[in-house]
Amino acid sequence: MAQHKKVLVSVINNISTDQRVEKVCNSLFKNGYEILIIGTNYNGMPPLNRPYFTQRFKLIFQKKFLLFAEFNCKLFVKLLFQSDKNTLLLANDLDTLLPNYLVSKIKKIPLVFDSHEIYSELPSIQGRFAQKVWRKLEKYLIPRVKHFYTVSEGYADFFEKKYGNRPLVIKNVPLLNIASCKEKKRTIDLPENTQNKKILLYQGAINSCRGIDKMIEAINFIENAQLWIIGNGPLKKDYEKLCIKLQVENKVYFFGEIPPKQLRQITPMADLGLSLEEDGGLSYRYALPNKLFDYIHAKIPILGTYLPEIKNIINENQIGEVISDHSAFEISEKIKFLISKGKKYYLTNLEKTSVKYNWEAQEIILLNIFHQASK
């Protein structure tokens, strides 16, 4: 067993819907590590039911820059006084890395870094002063991180080329035995579907460059279908207004955030999963979203974007179709084609792919990283 038993996990969200952090912490916890996740009240404080310790800072500021500053100051103090010689630090994304790095140096304790994305290349900060700040932090910190992993080979290639430090890849995939992670009773109200309309599903953040507005435009050209959008984000109200403008509000349903265990009941109900990210910079170009694998494990075919990581998963495993552009015509035609094929057509390949990409296999890599960090 590892010499270091306690892991302080930092993440700037409210913990409740971060499936990657939950899987990592569950894996470490069941292998003998004492876990404390430190998060925030950003977007609320939904109830948590975890077998390990959690703490969420009640932040005064909920806007980006002030939120980051407040959280990082509080996080630095928390880590400094909570850690000891038997502690490992786990920073999730660049926005938590600086205080973790400083405390790891002050206390001479190991630091592990999980980069969920290329933070300095996110669409929301393109061309802004904030991008220069994050790039400087990235340039200083990334080469100095010894124990480092990320979600896709594209991201790993970027970090290696840019900073000479190649992380290991731990894909954000579900457990193979995902059925055991479902709630027994569904508490989410679903739209009426007395006419057995086909259900098109998007799950994830409601941000720019996710292709959500293009999905909404495309639904106008598809008969006998509903679009379910599960998640939250800054553009939700804008997209709700777009539905009214295009007169598709009776075909598009916004669910808000749904706890992962409830979501695992709803995703398999869909006829098709959508992952239509646009090329909003390097972070999106090489993204490998967890929703892609959630769809696979729910045994629903996928309509995906032409971006390389997503395209490769779909084409190599023959589990759906890939759009060539983001026009409403292209998207609607591909959706019609997939609906005409039906879920059963893709079922065998989806079953094979779910066995190929599962958390149990990724967990082996994760535990080895923490074992090496504990030496």
Score class of each variant (00 low, 15 high):
A179E: 15
A179I: 10
A179Y: 14
S180T: 14
S180F: 07
S180Y: 10
C181D: 13
C181G: 05
E183Q: 13
K185E: 13
K185W: 04
T187P: 02
I188Y: 03
I188R: 07
D189L: 15
L190R: 10
L190Q: 09
L190W: 10
P191G: 11
P191R: 10
P191E: 11
P191W: 08
E192R: 14
E192S: 13
T194I: 14
Q195L: 14
N196F: 11
K197L: 11
K197H: 11
K197P: 07
K198M: 07
K198A: 14
K198Y: 12
I199Y: 08
I199W: 10
L200Q: 08
L200F: 10
L200P: 04
Y202G: 01
G204M: 10
A205C: 07
N207E: 12
C209H: 15
R210G: 01
R210A: 04
R210L: 06
I212Y: 06
K214W: 02
K214M: 08
K214R: 13
M215P: 01
M215Q: 05
I216G: 06
E217V: 04
E217R: 13
A218M: 13
A218G: 08
A218N: 09
I219L: 03
N220I: 15
I222G: 08
I222Y: 10
I222D: 06
E223S: 11
E223A: 12
E223T: 04
N224E: 14
N224W: 06
N224P: 04
N224M: 12
A225E: 05
A225Y: 14
Q226V: 09
Q226R: 09
L227F: 06
L227M: 05
L227T: 01
W228K: 05
W228C: 04
I229H: 03
I229E: 06
I230C: 03
I230M: 08
G231W: 02
G231Y: 03
G231A: 07
N232W: 04
P234F: 10
K236S: 03
K236Y: 00
K236E: 12
D238K: 15
Y239L: 12
Y239F: 13
Y239H: 03
E240S: 00
E240A: 05
E240C: 03
K241S: 13
L242T: 05
L242N: 07
L242V: 02
L242K: 15
C243Y: 09
C243S: 12
C243H: 08
I244E: 13
I244T: 09
I244L: 12
K245P: 00
K245E: 13
Q247A: 12
Q247Y: 08
Q247D: 07
Q247N: 14
E249N: 13
E249H: 11
K251S: 01
F254L: 09
F255C: 05
G256F: 04
E257R: 08
E257K: 11
P259E: 11
K261D: 11
R264F: 06
R264P: 00
R264K: 14
T267N: 02
T267W: 02
T267V: 15
P268G: 08
P268A: 05
P268R: 06
M269E: 05
M269N: 02
M269C: 00
M269T: 04
A270T: 04
L272W: 08
G273L: 06
S275G: 05
S275Y: 00
L276W: 01
L276T: 00
E277F: 03
